[in-house]
């Protein structure tokens, strides 16, 4: 699903060069649920931005679902984001002047989906997050947890292959955080690949696979294996997949 090879990201200002990511390697298989943790300033957000094609990287290669992202132009990246990725942001990022229905509709309109099909999907997704009855409400009329559920509905409406969540519970209290987490787990069970950036260790522990970003590089901790371990490799993934198969 995701294949990052020696990704480097350098922020250049007049005075300093900052290496946000250094020779960053990561593979994510279809259907995985990964929590990305790390201290602030470690490069988590940069990783998320690059994974979501929200910003370009300086060198390396990144394949998303078999497509070499580095070769795309701005329009193609926008289209690919729209088709393959569902975003869930820490601040929800709902559009305040649009009601819930219209908010969920935004990515569908950019994809050019017909009105009737949009309606079907929006209603289904709002239902899924338990807000079907409030489609005409404005975001400000909802609690934080409800707003994040709308954002999840928006992310799901496009039926993305891949969900990117940036501190999805960062602005929520623990009860609402748990609800949101449960929805994400549910979505994952239904087959979506989820990469979640979080600083909350408890939340991270609930994800089947944990990776940690430190100083722009990857340290992989697999909870399956009970202990922090070495850099992520394709072999590990295969081994874990086999282990999971055996468990089942």
């Amino acid at each position: 699903m995701i294949k990052m090879n020696n990704i480097n990201k350098v922020y250049q200002t007049e005075m300093v060069q900052t290496h946000a990511l250094r020779d960053f390697n990561l593979e994510v298989e279809q259907g995985e649920f990964i929590a990305v943790t790390g201290p602030s300033g470690s490069g988590k957000t940069t990783f998320l931005n690059i994974a979501g094609m929200l910003e370009p990287f300086s060198s390396g290669t990144y394949e998303l679902d078999g497509i070499d992202v580095g070769k795309l132009n701005d329009n193609q990246r926008a289209d690919l984001r729209n088709q393959k990725i569902g975003f869930i942001f820490q601040g929800f990022n709902l559009i305040p002047d649009l009601n819930l229905y219209e908010n969920v509709e935004v990515p569908l309109r950019y994809r050019g989906i017909k009105s009737a099909e949009r309606k079907k999907r929006i209603e289904r997704c709002l239902e899924l997050v338990g807000l079907g009855a409030r489609a005409k409400h404005l975001p400000q009329q909802l609690s934080g947890g409800q707003q994040q559920r709308v954002a999840i509905a928006r992310a799901l409406a496009g039926e993305p292959r891949f969900l990117l969540a940036d501190e999805p519970t960062g602005n929520l209290d623990s009860l609402m955080a748990r609800q949101v987490m449960e929805i994400l787990e549910e979505i994952n069970r239904e087959g979506a690949t989820i990469v979640m950036v979080t600083h909350d260790p408890e939340l991270a522990r609930r994800a089947p696979r944990n990776i940690q970003v430190v100083d722009g590089q990857l340290a992989d901790f697999s909870l399956y294996q009970g202990a922090p371990n070495k850099q992520q490799t394709a072999g590990d993934i295969a081994a874990r997949a086999a282990a999971r198969a055996a468990e089942a």
Partner: peptide, 16 residues
Amino acid sequence: TKQIGTRRALGARKSA
């Protein structure tokens, strides 16, 4: 600004 960034993230092209 944030809304524009969000729209871009959700798949809006610059022209949109």
